[in-house]
Write a protein that binds this DNA or RNA. Sequence first.
DNA 1: AAGTCGGGGGC
DNA 2: GCCCCAGACTT
Length: 370
Amino acid sequence: MPFLIAVSSTVKRVLPLIRMMHPVAYTLIEWYHSNKRDLPWRNTRDPYLIWLSEIILQQTRVEQGRPYYERFKEAFPSVASLAKAKEEKVLKLWQGLGYYSRARNLHKAARMVLEKHQGIFPTDHAAIRELPGIGDYTAAAIASFAYDLRYPVVDGNVYRFLSRLFGIDTPIDSTAGKKEFLQVATELIQHAPPHEFNQAIMEFGALTCVPSNPNCDSCVFRSSCIARKKNTIQELPVKAKKQTSRNRYFHYIVLHDGKDVYLKQRTEKDIWMNLWEFPMLEEKKALGPEGMLRKTSLLFKNHSTTMHDKPSKARHLLSHQTLHAVFYEFTLQKKIKLPATWKKVNRKNLQKFPVPKLIEKYLRQLLVGD
DNA sequence: AAGTCGGGGGC
DNA sequence: GCCCCAGACTT
C-alpha cells in the first residue's frame, strides 16, 4: 500500500479510497478527524518526545500523565539531556506517577541510545522494541507515530473496541486472546495509514467505546457492532484473571535529631525501588506501641531515644497490596551508632528526595507542623 | 501462565 | 468495593 503511505498527511483526500478497502478503518479515521483531542504529544514527530509520552501514558490516564509530560519535556528536552541526568533526579520528577520501573527504564534506555545508537533514537521497529521499558504496544506506537511504520497498537482501548465490534469473547489477558486481537488489528491496519489508524482506534476507545455505559445509540458503528446487537456490551472485553490483594504492615521510625531526620533508600526488588522513606519495620501484623518499643529497644540501646505518643496512621492502597502504615516518632537523646544505611537529612532538604505518595503525604504534615 | 509493579478516577 | 487506565517485566 505504498500510495497510501505517501499521502498519509493528506489523508482526508484519500478517505474514499480507504473506505473502498476497509469500512472500519475508514470510519475510525473519519471519526478521529472530527473528534480528536488536542494533546501535546500529537504535535510532534520527534521520536524522543513520542517515546517519553508513551512511557508516561502506560497504565495511566491522559489527564494524569499530561503535567508530567510537560515537566519532563521542560527538564529533559532531548534524549541526551535525559541520559546525562542522575537517576535520582529522574525519579524525583516521576514522583507521584507510580510504576517507578518506568522511570528507571526510561533513564536506562536513554543511556543506551547514547552508547549503542550514537544518540540517535533507533528508527526501526526491532531496535526500538529492544530498549528497556518498551514492549509490543509501545514499540508499535513509536514506530507508527514517529516513522509511520505499519505496526498496530493493541492497548486496553483497542481490546475493548475490537472485542465489542466483532463480538470476540476470548479473554484479553490470555495468550490466545493477545494473539487473536493482534491478528485483527494487523489486518485492519493494512488498509489505512498506520499513524492515523493507530491514533484513531485508541482515541475511539478512550472517548466513545468507553468501559462503562458507552452511548451506543450515537456510535458510528451502531449498525454493525456485534456486542450491541447481542446486548453484551457490558460483558466485553472478557478478562480471565482476578486481582488479588494482600495486607502489609509498615512501622515507620521517624527519628528526629535536632533539625535532621533519617531516611533510607529502598533497594530491594519490591514496591518503590530506589525511592526513599523512613527506616521501617515490616511485620506480619500490626505491632502497636508496646511492640514497637520492644523491637526498637534493640536498635536504640539504653534509652537513647524517646518515643512520642499518638503515632499517625495511614492506609495506602496499591493495585496488589493494602499498606497499613504507622508513623512512630522518636527523638534522639544522645549520640549512638545507627545503621550505615540510614541517611541523616536536614529537614529543609527533604524535598530533594524522591519519595512515594504515602511518605510525601506524611512529610507534608510534618513540615507544616513546625 | 501467573504474579508484580502505583496512583487516581469512575461508578 | 471493584474496575480500568495509550503495559512491561519477572518468575
